[in-house]
């Protein structure tokens, strides 16, 4: 009995026999699924099952917990297909085609930019420096096997200056097993483990459409990388940045944006605050950031939108821009961060 397996979003397909694991079948047919131990221990091959039925062989709970299995996650190294199966795995995405690598990273600096945001700079190994597209992200590999995703906030050309360093913007999630240590015990020179790059959120340079950049909170990080990249490459497409926060202090790098405005005539900036207090003396735009875009651009049919931030903002933006602004759905770019409540 043979089952058809397909992998989204790349659309790659292969066939799996009843007595082989999904991973063995993929490897046998030259489909590059991620994996590590091939033994149900490391979790590197974990991916999401969109449809179909699988049976898991023995594996460690830290690689795939019962909860995760119930949520539809699978370990391809010990799962056999019981039906046709559709998986989701960003790592096989051919787009970009940059190699994903594991690496140690060293804390170069920690700078608190607001009451709940730290800018973390990490030094990368100098041999075989990671290559990425502006807007992509890396995952931290935590010791218990779980992962946390963060976007690079600097454009890749900045890595040419030694030592190669990436910048991440970390918001504190109280009680979070990654961000609690970042805000309390993490210090310079500490070593973390990371893997990347991941993600399909990067500037489509084959288009000359005007751009809307939409960020909420630390969703500004990959947007900052896009802006740096545009400046570096001399891309002069009109771009308007909408950055939303609850209070003005949530726009933790407003000064940096202002500096870019002076250098980039094609860039506009609209900060939007939803919960200003009297003491903020806020005189700028108020309300929800994704709505401000539609107020200014009721017709988005000729635009590209790049959005990053809280899922509620990104999801609402996509829905409204497509339905009410006439934005072609495929011109809305966002990485689906489930913003894994960092627990």
């Amino acid at each position: 009995m043979t089952h058809h397996i397909s992998v989204e979003p790349s659309g790659l397909r292969f066939q799996a026999l009843a007595d082989e694991t999904l991973l063995s079948a993929a490897i046998r047919q030259g489909v590059g699924m991620p994996y590590g131990c091939k033994d149900g221990a490391c979790g590197s091959c974990k991916c999401k099952k969109i449809s179909g039925t699988v049976i898991h062989g023995p594996h460690q709970d830290k690689a795939l917990s019962a909860d995760e299995e119930a949520q539809g996650l699978v370990l391809t190294c010990c799962a056999t297909a019981q039906s046709d199966v559709v998986l989701e795995s960003k790592q096989v995405t051919p787009e970009g085609g940059l190699p994903v690598k594991k690496m140690p990273v060293r804390v170069a600096s920690l700078e608190k930019k607001s009451h709940d945001v730290i800018v973390l700079k990490l030094q990368l190994p100098a041999n075989d420096v990671m290559k990425y597209h502006a807007g992509q992200y890396i995952e931290f590999l935590l010791r218990d096997g779980s992962r946390r995703s963060y976007s690079m906030a600097n454009a890749p050309h900045t890595l040419e200056v030694a030592p190669p360093t990436v910048e991440l913007h970390i918001r504190h999630m109280p009680g979070g097993k990654f961000t609690d240590p970042v805000f309390t015990t993490l210090k310079e020179k500490d070593i973390l483990r990371a893997e990347g790059p991941y993600g399909s959120f990067y500037l489509r340079e084959d288009s000359d459409k005007p751009i809307v950049l939409l960020a909420s909170g630390t969703g500004f990080a990959p947007i900052k990388a896009l802006i740096e990249h545009m400046q570096h490459r001399g891309i002069t497409r009109p771009a308007t940045l909408y950055w939303g926060g609850r209070r003005p202090s949530d726009l933790y790098m407003a000064d940096l944006v202002e500096a870019r405005l002076a250098e980039m005539p094609n860039l506009r900036y609209v900060p939007v605050i939803s919960n200003a207090e009297a003491e903020d003396n806020w005189t700028g735009r108020t309300g929800f950031v994704h709505q401000a875009v539609l107020q200014d651009f009721p017709d988005l049919s000729g635009h590209q939108v790049y959005a990053c931030g809280a899922p509620i903002v990104v999801d609402s933006a996509k829905r409204d821009y497509v339905a009410r602004g006439g934005l072609p759905e495929e011109e809305f770019y966002a990485d689906a961060f489930t913003s894994a409540a960092d627990k």
Binding site: R106, P125, N127
Partner: peptide, 8 residues
Amino acid sequence: DLFEGAGI
């Protein structure tokens, strides 16, 4: 090319 505190 080495990275203090980790293996390469």
